[in-house]
């Protein structure tokens, strides 16, 4: 599988040519996400020096892993669309609506509903339907995905607030929260869930026809179509799948806090996009995969955790993320492919 993963390195070719000759270079190439691992190493080094080793303490590492779980799931969702070369900004809206639906359908203190475990397929269905609309707007109405999904996000967020009447809905079903905050062999269960999802997507991307065709579309949509790839159908399914995963993330957010509100959807898009870019998934499409999404999220979460540990003004975090996002995109984007930069 070495070859597939070397995609993520494509765009740091200058760095690559410098190191490729040496033995270190060989090692660098044999590991699929070396560049990102090095970044993580640098982040870890800086913060462990800055916090006298506190950063690398096992308990902090587990905290970072636990914190990274939900962002990771979101990143795993959105990176799929980005591999297609499209964009999905509907994340916050879909998470908000699924979170609110989960809150109202599980045993809660506002309505009489209690769907129990059925909630899992229900949130996936809601998210999936929203994703499907995104896909249809992009392929059938031929609208640029970044604006249609932005519109979707606003629409769904508004709907979420309406049906929740703008307030939080406390849950009375503690089972979900128990699973979320539990640990398995000392590792947060929710992190394991995220990794499992990553694994499923990894297999899908590398071992199935759908995965191969996704990359073909991301590489060049016109050529892929010529070769017989069913472009529209795949785009719609991936948008739908992405929506389903947003739905899962919405449920997990609700479970973790044992209550639900539309505002749980707020401020999720930005870290997810940063993780995608930092992980080496190129915004121009066709490059990078689930592994990149996983490591990208860990880097971003570790970075923010480190800033907290070093007692840096918490509001500086979004500035740091903004700078990291812009620089990561600057490094990974293939400017020849998108032609004119708008």
């Amino acid at each position: 599988m070495k070859t597939k993963n070397s995609r993520s390195l494509e765009n740091i070719s200058t760095l690559r040519s410098k190191v490729s000759a040496s033995a270190v270079g060989k090692l660098y190439h044999s590991i699929p996400i070396s560049g990102q691992i090095i970044s993580l190493g640098i982040v870890a080094l800086i913060f462990s020096l800055g916090t006298n080793g506190q950063f690398l303490h096992i308990s902090n590492i587990m905290t970072v892993l636990g914190l990274s779980a939900i962002p990771m799931i979101l990143c795993l969702a959105v990176h799929q669309v980005i591999i297609l070369g499209a964009m999905d900004l509907s994340l916050e809206g879909i998470v908000a609506i699924t979170a609110v639906s989960a809150g109202l359908l599980l045993k809660n203190s506002v309505t009489a509903n209690d769907v129990g475990l059925w909630i899992i397929p229900i949130v996936m269905l809601i998210g999936g339907l929203a994703g499907l609309v995104n896909g249809l707007l992009n392929t059938k109405l031929r609208m640029p995905s970044f604006i249609s999904t932005l519109g979707m996000s606003w629409t769904l967020f508004g709907v979420a607030i309406m049906i929740s009447k703008g307030s939080s809905i406390p849950l009375r079903d503690l089972r979900f929260q128990k699973v979320i905050i539990s640990e398995f062999l000392g590792i947060p269960t929710v992190f394991i869930l995220a990794i499992l999802l990553g694994l499923v997507l990894y297999i899908m991307q590398n071992k199935t026809k759908l995965g191969k065709h996704m990359y073909a579309i991301g590489g060049n949509e016109i050529l892929a179509k010529q070769a017989g790839v069913k472009v529209d159908r795949i785009k719609i399914s991936i948008f739908g799948l992405t929506g389903m995963i947003y739905g899962l993330a919405g449920l997990l957010l609700v479970a973790r806090l044992n209550s639900s509100a539309a505002r749980y959807g707020n401020n999720l898009l930005f870290p997810a996009m940063t993780a995608v870019a930092v992980g080496g998934v190129s915004l121009s499409g066709g490059v990078g995969g689930a592994l990149n999404a996983v490591i990208g999220t860990i880097i971003v979460v570790a970075l923010n955790n480190g800033l907290v540990l070093m007692q840096i003004n918490p509001y500086m975090q979004s500035a740091v993320n903004g700078i990291v996002l812009i620089s990561a995109v600057a490094l990974t984007i293939d400017r020849n492919k998108i032609g004119i930069i708008k």
Binding site: K212, H213, A227
Partner: peptide, 18 residues
């Protein structure tokens, strides 16, 4: 009409993976 981000194998059999 070769996709640069796919391997030789993937390009050869694109759409005939089945």
């Amino acid at each position: 009409s070769i996709l640069p981000n796919l391997t030789v194998t993937e390009n050869l059999f694109l759409c005939h993976e089945k």
